[in-house]
């Protein structure tokens, strides 16, 4: 596959980068990224990955656009209220960049569909809001040996790390979901909308680095930031040999959805 003259123009600011170049842009064009959750994190990630020319972008989300989403889920517009998020997102991606092949899944990522969907992608972005989904994405990616970017936001804080086979996974840091009655969600605790953009674009950057094969991924490190102090910190984390999913004798060998808040049940 070659880039057309128009594509060389479109991606010229990438191609100019010594570490990307024509070859790197070709890798991006052949890249396949799955975005799980077309919400606060998935929205900015999808916009930048589309603009970057990622060949295939998959988006999975069963939700419809709601007025409370618009404060931070920047891929959805006011006129999209009531329509499925995956359709709203797909439409924007095609408008930004018709080169992108978009695959939409109007359903929740579940133990039943997880491995089948993951098989078609190189990199996964966790843009979900709830812990059962985050643990499921982790477990499924560990089992399928897929790289993924974890992201979490709350109030003025964000955290993210990248998993590749062999590095510390989410369960190495957080072995089990927190007690269900303690979990504050965005709807209960609130979140500054632009934080979703800060984190989602970090996740998109990790996806691009992984696809191109450049730089140091955010593996074995948890990046934590607080927007009020605007302090960023990376905490080294280690693969846990006793980890229930990626340890030497894993207790978890089948995908299940961990129990969580009643308000987060689908």
């Amino acid at each position: 596959m070659d880039l057309t003259e128009e594509q060389i123009q479109r991606y010229s600011r990438h191609i100019l980068l010594k570490d990307v170049g024509y070859e790197g842009q070709l890798k991006i064009a052949n890249g396949k990224v799955l975005i799980i959750g077309a919400g606060g994190l998935g929205a900015p990630a999808a916009l930048y990955l589309a603009a970057a020319g990622v060949g295939t972008i998959g988006i999975i989300d069963a939700d419809v656009v709601d007025i409370t989403n618009l404060q931070r889920q920047v891929i959805h517009h006011t006129s999209d209220i009531g329509i499925p998020k995956v359709h709203s997102a797909a439409q924007k991606i095609k408008e930004i960049n018709p080169d992108v092949h978009v695959r939409t899944y109007h359903e929740w990522f579940s133990p039943e569909n997880a491995l089948k969907i993951l098989a078609d992608y190189d990199f996964v972005i966790d843009g979900t809001d709830n812990f059962p989904a985050k643990f499921l994405i982790n477990d499924a990616c560990v089992m399928a040996k897929k790289a993924f970017s974890h992201g979490g936001i709350l109030r003025f804080d964000g955290q993210t790390f990248t998993y590749v086979p062999g590095s510390a996974c989410y369960r190495c840091i957080f072995p089990t979901p927190p007690p269900k009655d303690l979990v504050p969600t965005c709807s209960q605790a609130g979140v500054l909308g632009s934080i979703a953009g800060m984190l989602g674009t970090i996740q998109a950057t990790e996806a691009l680095k992984y696809i191109i094969g450049i730089g140091d991924l955010l593996t074995n490190r948890l990046l934590i930031f607080n927007a009020l102090s605007m302090q960023f910190r990376t905490v080294p984390v280690k693969k846990n040999d006793n980890c229930a999913v990626c340890g030497s004798s894993p207790a978890i060998t089948q995908l299940v959805l961990e129990k969580q808040n009643a308000c987060e049940l689908r």
């Binding site: 812990f131 709807s187 979703a196």
Partner: peptide, 17 residues
């Protein structure tokens, strides 16, 4: 010592609630 907090966020939960 590092205290690492659980963070969900991202996609909203209002509509599901």
């Amino acid at each position: 010592v590092d205290f690492l907090y659980f963070m969900g966020g991202g996609q909203n939960s209002e509509s599901k609630m």
